[in-house]
Design a binder for these strands. Sequence first.
DNA 1: CGAGGTGTTGAACCGGTTCAACACCCGTGG
DNA 2: CCACGGGTGTTGAACCGGTTCAACACCTCG
Lengths: 243, 243
Amino acid sequence: MAIPHPLGAKFERSLALSDIDRAAVDALPVTLESRRAGEGVLRAGDHPSRSFLILSGLLASSKAAMASGEVQITCFHLPGDMPDLQSLHLAVLDSDIRALTDCQLAFMAHQDLRRLCEQHPRLAGQLWRTTLVDAAIYREWVVNVGQRPAISRIAHVFCELMLRMEAAGLAQDKSCHLGLTQQHLSEATGLSPVHVNRTLQELRARGLISFGQGRLTILNWEALVEMGDFRADYLHLREPEAA
Amino acid sequence: MAIPHPLGAKFERSLALSDIDRAAVDALPVTLESRRAGEGVLRAGDHPSRSFLILSGLLASSKAAMASGEVQITCFHLPGDMPDLQSLHLAVLDSDIRALTDCQLAFMAHQDLRRLCEQHPRLAGQLWRTTLVDAAIYREWVVNVGQRPAISRIAHVFCELMLRMEAAGLAQDKSCHLGLTQQHLSEATGLSPVHVNRTLQELRARGLISFGQGRLTILNWEALVEMGDFRADYLHLREPEAA
DNA sequence: CGAGGTGTTGAACCGGTTCAACACCCGTGG
DNA sequence: CCACGGGTGTTGAACCGGTTCAACACCTCG
């Protein structure tokens, strides 16, 4: 294969593959698809028979709440993530997954992934681990929307996104392309769009960030971390293979 | 072994074990310990070398937020749960886990659990699955604290707890022993203790629940479900082994 | 040129917080 | 036996962070 297998690339970000493992991953069939900004990828209630890896673009998991139709984003998904990997073991999907920007996705059949996991426990463990990191992010989000005031919530989300973008190799100098709207931030933080707008102004006025035109730049990382009550431990970055 | 292995019992609640699998589980060494109400079991930052299964009692995962020392409970853990199973693949713990009531725990070494997973992919998949259900619960809690008004939040928590208690065989007629205080509910919902108190009165006045003296009874399930905007799909109960 | 998505502003309103006091229960020790 | 103390639950009243509604600005795209 001329182009490295996308799943292989994902694995190699965190551990060295044996030749056997690498061959197994390379043999795994992949279907490439793309989605336009705003399009749904999967809906709550679906029974997927395949999962996908994000090659480019920004996605979000969200759930509809109450009758009135509010939406809560529960997680952002960046390139290198597999937003519906859970469906490998949970028959029915409990969240919607939609593209926030145009994006490219690499689909893999559950059947193939299951065989890979059975025959390569090390890879299975690694995939399991990524779902555990997702869970840790959800936990932190419960704290974020449950306990923090508006300005901290937004600061926290920005801190998380920046570190994850860096880990994905998509940020330099605390600046990255990020096609998020204030509406998206509102859905992620549980704040009204109006209050998100005002809070962003406050963050800008304090010289902490610049945000808009599809770009986030953090001007004062330490201050933003402080403002967002942010501790990066829950992202479980650069934990060498737990053994 | 005269007493059935607690982990074997957990597995058999959701799938039939082959003789080989069952023998492997039965051979897995277990250490029993107990904790008193209020005691911590593990703290954020710990590097556990073993995980535990709850035999009896009620635990909670929680995280400290902000400097002022607020605490957010991110999940309740019931008998049959393994609250720190994540530490099998994540080196450092990102939440505190404490006993809310007196409880009995069965500890198993990571080393042994890893070997079990490597040699018995079916069991590995099942354990993986339970961590995915936990993640689904976290997602729903993000929605709960992010979007719902006080009365719905509390109603939702009660609906979830009742179904999980039923699934654990610990509830009959929508009534169960539940040693939760209003303080705990406050930490779980992100509401002030005072407002939890008033909201409970409202739920009682509407004839939906009775709650106190260590017991929760749901008097009108349908109405409570409606009030709590509750859809049980995220608990992934009685999904026959996804295969 | 018009339409729709996004961002911005002001002002009234409200759900939930905060603080402070008090009630109750149960276990402990004098 | 009662006194005491701490955890839990309850109540009232002032306060405030964030919501809501409504209007307007801006930009892009058809």
